[in-house]
Simulated scan of single mutants.
Amino acid sequence: MCILLLTTAHPKYALILLSNRDEYLNRKTSTAEFWHPKILSPLDLARPAPHGTWLGITRHGRLAVVLNYREDGENYVGKLSRGLLVREFLSDQKTTHDWAAQAITRMEELSGDVGGFSLVCGELKPNGSGLEEFAIITNRSRSLGEGTAWIFGDDNDNEYTGDEDIRQSIMEKTYGISNSLYWQPWPKVHRGREMLSTIILNSLKQNSSAHLNEEEQQQALIESLLDLLSVNSISESVLASGDPDLLFKSLGESIFIPAFHTGRATATGTPADYSQPREDSGYKYMKGGYYGTRTQTVVLVSTSGEVTYVEKTLHNCDDNTAGNQEGTVVHRFQIEGWDAHP
């Protein structure tokens, strides 16, 4: 299952975002690109156009990430793609609060048409001491209104004194969510927040040394963040068992999910299993032979509004061989209008 980690605790970066996308390896996906002049994201090609996405950012600083909610039993495939929520937010011009209010009303009307999700969205705008508020919207609480949380807006300046004060302050500005409710995090989220806080603390100490220039410091930070996204906590006994049921039950424990065989036929074999989508959902998606972490993403937004977007593709087809890697793409751009905000 996927994981999203975010922090506003680094004094050189208004936001640091980390994401693992865990998915069946046969699900058709494009790598991140500017498919629209203003919108950067990968695209989920499993459904008919318009294609949704799980993560994206615009040149104006709109950012959104969606994570599926892990249902009991088979995951529900709704009439409407959850990835379209990200696309819609990125394409809109409303404030986060106005868009969230409208989305909550619409999702309540379409409750039976959309699978469980948590949507993190907001505008990357400095507010004097941090970022404007981001929303976390879920449709698996008692009501969408009650299930909406707001983060970032109350974060204080990143002025630190003393190691314990630093660590506590970093943790308070570091957030995480996976495929459960935001306020009921899985163990992998707790572990991820702690590890990200340690990386930020170590980065602060490293930045005080003179042996690395700014570019080298950023690259070292990116590498440490990708290392975090590659931490596998699934026990050797469970991995060795090859039991898909045991492996799927372990997904809440591990930040990284090594690709494993699901017990279903691969794309080159006879399809052994289908999800049960609604007939009007527009597609019939075969669950593939392998499942695991497919894509790792790191987004750095500097305090001057410069974006560094790093996407690492680990798998692009339904097998688990070393030749099944597309590599890494990097995009850099300046958020338009950043200097217009306090």
Score class of each variant (00 low, 15 high):
139 N>E: 02
97 H>V: 08
332 R>E: 14
127 N>Y: 05
39 I>R: 05
9 A>Y: 00
80 L>N: 13
46 A>I: 14
224 S>P: 08
173 K>L: 04
205 K>M: 10
226 L>F: 01
13 Y>Q: 01
227 D>K: 01
325 Q>C: 14
204 L>R: 08
68 N>Q: 02
38 K>Q: 12
25 L>R: 04
44 D>E: 00
165 D>E: 15
18 L>A: 09
169 S>F: 09
206 Q>L: 11
150 W>I: 05
166 I>K: 06
208 S>L: 10
12 K>W: 05
339 D>L: 11
162 G>T: 13
34 F>Q: 15
56 G>C: 03
34 F>N: 15
316 N>D: 15
283 Y>D: 12
125 K>M: 15
161 T>D: 09
166 I>V: 13
199 I>G: 03
184 Q>E: 13
266 T>P: 01
252 G>S: 03
178 S>W: 04
184 Q>T: 07
115 G>W: 12
293 T>Y: 11
291 Y>G: 08
36 H>E: 13
155 D>R: 03
289 G>C: 08
132 E>P: 06
93 Q>P: 09
325 Q>D: 11
221 L>K: 05
68 N>P: 01
187 P>I: 00
165 D>M: 03
173 K>H: 07
24 Y>E: 08
99 W>N: 08
179 N>D: 14
51 H>N: 14
108 E>C: 12
46 A>L: 14
190 H>N: 12
315 H>R: 02
37 P>A: 03
41 S>P: 07
17 L>K: 03
160 Y>M: 01
93 Q>V: 11
300 L>G: 00
48 P>M: 10
244 P>D: 11
183 W>D: 10
161 T>C: 11
111 S>F: 10
104 I>C: 08
183 W>T: 07
268 T>W: 15
134 F>Q: 01
299 V>D: 00
302 S>V: 12
18 L>W: 04
97 H>G: 07
43 L>I: 10
82 R>N: 02
195 M>N: 11
27 R>M: 02
319 D>F: 09
68 N>Y: 03
308 T>V: 11
96 T>P: 13
96 T>D: 07
173 K>G: 04
84 L>C: 02
329 V>G: 06
267 A>N: 04
148 T>S: 05
2 C>I: 00
10 H>Q: 00
163 D>L: 07
